[in-house]
Structure formats: C-alpha cells, structure tokens
Nucleic acid binder design. Structure first.
Lengths: 260, 260
DNA sequence: CGACTTGTTGATGTACATCAAGGTACGTGG
DNA sequence: CCACGTACCTTGATGTACATCAACAAGTCG
C-alpha cells in the first residue's frame, strides 16, 4: 500500500500520478474564498505535496477500516464521505468539493471510520502523513490552518445534524440545495443560477436520511412550486428567496479559508 | 464537587475564577484514557490556563452568535452543545463530558453557531484565545493535540449523523445509551453497570431527533425487554450484549487522548 | 409550633387520532 | 440496464390530551 512519491504505481482504481502542478500555479488559489499564502508557506506546501492522484467516477479513495498514510486536498471533481450500517443502510456525511481537505481522521487515528468515494472523475493533491509532524513543528501557521479546516468540517456536520434531526423532508431538501448552491457559487461553478452536478436521487436520499421514493416526491414538490429545477444533472435555482425561506436557511458567512 | 472555598463570589453564572488547580495535579490526568504529558507540555498548559470557571446547572457558557475569546476544558460535570431553528426546534449535537475541549469553533471563527449549556454544576479550565497562537508556534505537540481533539469530535458527529439519519428510534436510543455508558465507564463513573446522569427525556428527544412522547415509548420498550432501567437519574445497563445488538453498535476503540 | 391540607410545577407515563415518511409495485425514457 | 417518476398502501413517528407522581411553597388548623 505504500505508494511513494513519483511512483507511477499501478493502482487498482487507477491514477496517473502524472506530473505535479506547482502549488504556485494551483488553479484554486485564485478564488476569493481561499486566503493568501506567504512565500514560505507556499514553498512548504509544495514540498509537502508528494504528487497527484486521479480517480474515475465511482472509485473509492478510502474505505471504512483503512489506515491511510496519506492526506488529500481535492483539486477538481466531486466526492462524498459516508458510513454504513451492517445491513447496508448508508448515510452520506458530507460532500467533498474542490479545496476540501480529507483523510485527517484516518491519518490521525490510523483507522478511517468512513468511506470516501468519487462522484465524478477527480484529481487530488497527495500529502504523506509522515510529513505532517514537520508541518506542525516548522509551520505553525499551516498547522493552525489544518485545525481551522477541521473546525470548519465540524461546523458543517453540526448544520447537517440539525437538518436531519429537526427539519422536515422538504426543509431538509431545500436546505441542502441552498448549501450546495452556495458552495458551487463560491467555486464559480454557477452560471445563470444553474450548475452541473453528478449527484443523483439516491445520493440525495442518503444525504438527507430519506427513502428514495420520498426524496423523489420531495424534489418534485420544490419543482412544482417553481422553486428549483433539476434535470439532466443540471440544478437550477429559480427562486433563491423562496428556497431559503422553505429551508429556514442559516447560511452564516464563510471567511477566506486556507488551502493546504 | 469541590468548589474552591476561597471565593464566595456572587456571580449569576460566572463564578469566581477562584483558584487554579495546578495542571500537575489535574484530577483527570490519572485516567487511562488520557495520554501522558511531558514536563514541558504540562508547564505550557499550566501557563496557558488562565483560571477556572464554575457554572450552575442550566447556565449557558456560550450562545449562538457569540464571539468567545476563550477556550475551555471541562473538568467536572455534564454539558451539551446544541443548535436551534427559528421556530424553536432544538437539536443537541453532542454531550460534553470531563476532558472534552470546547470553544474551538467559536474562537477560530469568531462566532459560535451553537450554544453550550450546563446540565449539572460544572467546573471548566479556561484558556485565553490569544495564547493559542503561541501554543501553535512553541508547542507543536500540543498543537497537534488540538487538531487531534477536533478530529475526534468530528468522528463522534459522524457517528451521530449515521444514527439520526439511518437508525430507527429504538436503534438510536440503544446506540446513544451504549455510547453514554462507554464514556461514563472510561471516566470511572460506572459502578455495578450503573451511573448517575442529569439527562432527562427532553434532552434525549433532542439528542435523537425524536418527539418527547416517542422518546418515552422507546425508552419503555428497552425497559420492558429487560435491557436497561433508567429511574431517578440512575441509568442501569442490565444486558449490555443485547443493548449492543439492538444498537447495531460500532464502538470502535478509543486510544489515549490528550487533555489540554 | 408542628402536622396536615392545598396548590403549583416539572418530569414522566399512556391513549388516542393523525400524518409524514417508508416500501412495493410498476410505469417511463434514455 | 439504470435513473427517474408516480400510485397505493403500510407503518413509524408526531401531537394533543390527560393522568400520575414527587418536590416544594403557602396556607390552615389542632
């Protein structure tokens, strides 16, 4: 399982560890949502990164029970993190979008308690776990960023928990769509109030803790009310205000975040 | 309950920052679940700690929207963290037990998106936010611990989300009780398979995403089956194996953790 | 003064009727 | 074949209502 940098390993799920995009040319860093890095920070991140990993849609990055010696930042594409019960019931914990940092839990505890799967073709930056301690000892600013990202993840889980525990089906759905829409907009994926997403109704159901059938009915309700449309993988928000109202949306603000 | 007898300060909710138990004599550090600290780490934590805070049952440590300039470690007592919807529906995100570190989100984002309330009388160690950066720059080991604790919190939220999203009422209840029981046992609060807890049925309902009435019926089912008893604030696990089975419990293991 | 009522309040227990969400079945279209 | 759509019936969870019980305060009487 030890894939060392620059190794063009076979990889079951595939991947050209190809070339390394230099962090100075990272396509994400231009976005407003990410904070500026100092020269020295960029340099460190550059040395921290051991390579890139490409996965095809449906591939699994990390499985429940795995001990992952690597951390990742998603560069492009969509992924999701989930847990299952012994009988197969699945709960999607959160989506992973570009700029998100994953694998911290698995690295820190030497055992993942969740699975991470690609929804679309994805490209990830790969960081070896061993270098994490040198990050903490030589780059306190970046170390703080790692903590910051963990706290952000926690906050998103909090939101999710409130939704699933206390919102009705239609409120949940509206809230999730608001959340998605906001994040997609931050990443400049939205044009004319619409964006393309690989999410299907089964994913929706498993994110929201609903059955597939009920998910479909709920989505239809939002469509019938003229609030959204979701056809051919294109999600359009037709009435953002009403969507937010149905969602009882509490977006909060999102300050510029670090990207490791 | 030892409130330092020094200070009979008034305070409605904020008690006297009274006295400081030296970290070298921290009553929690003896427990197996906490990792050993080096001399230098202990020294730093000692200087990081600005005092102690005692709250009475029902008091609020932190409210949604607050910018908390402090971080806390719970020394004794029970607390919980929750979010609410505009119409009052409440979701308890997690319980806070001795050794837990709270206030990171609020400190890091300069705004809490949740409330933290005391279930019983509690004592907390207080740390000023300003010193957090010196912790990161001079104590990489402790900085890593902070991240570790954040990752642990995230893992507990993951579990919770799976439960609320995908388990039935009775499974949820059984799972929560297993979780509680395990944590109480780690803290040496369990004797003869029983422990005392200030949790009432309304709290249970809000933790599990159920109505009060249904919570009562579900609890009764577990009692009728001879699996648990919960009377006068004393929770007894009468059949741990069956409880775990109903819960479809996946406890995982808990490695020694740092206590800041 | 103490002993006994009465009233209040909060947590718990249970019985309905109702409703939101689940499950099965069977469509369609690509 | 798979993702989506919808009808129909079932069930798990909700909401309202009301009863019980202990803790506590106030008022009354022997």
């Amino acid at each position: 399982m030890q894939v060392t940098a620059q190794d063009k390993s076979p990889a079951q799920t595939k991947a050209g560890s190809s070339h390394k995009i230099p962090c100075t040319e990272c396509p994400l860093r231009g976005l407003k949502i990410f904070r500026d890095f100092t020269e020295s920070e960029l340099q460190f991140v550059e040395s921290f990164k051991s390579g890139e990993l490409t996965l095809e849609a449906g591939a699994t990055l990390l499985r429940e029970g795995d001990d992952s010696p690597r951390l990742y930042t998603l560069l492009s594409g969509w992924m999701f993190r989930y847990k299952t019960l012994p009988d197969g019931r699945r709960q999607i914990l959160n989506l992973v979008l570009p700029g998100d940092f994953v694998g911290l839990q698995a690295s820190v505890f030497h055992e993942a308690q969740h699975t991470i799967e690609a929804l679309s073709e994805v490209v990830l930056c790969v960081f070896p776990r061993e270098k994490l301690s040198s990050l903490f000892s030589t780059q306190p600013g970046l170390a703080f960023d790692v903590t910051w990202l963990a706290a952000r993840e926690e906050r998103m889980l909090d939101d999710n928990l409130l939704s699933i525990g206390r919102r009705t089906a239609i409120e949940r759905m509206a809230n999730l769509i608001m959340h998605l829409f906001r994040r997609a907009r931050e990443l400049r994926l939205v044009r004319d109030m619409a964006f393309t997403t690989p999410i299907n109704q089964q994913h929706l159901a498993d994110m929201l803790g609903l059955s597939l059938v009920h998910t479909n009915k709920t989505l239809r309700k939002l469509y019938d009310r003229g609030i959204i449309s979701w056809r051919d993988k294109i999600l359009t928000v037709k009435d953002e205000a009403r969507l937010a109202a149905v969602a009882k949306f509490d977006g909060g603000n999102s300050p510029p975040r670090p990207i490791i």
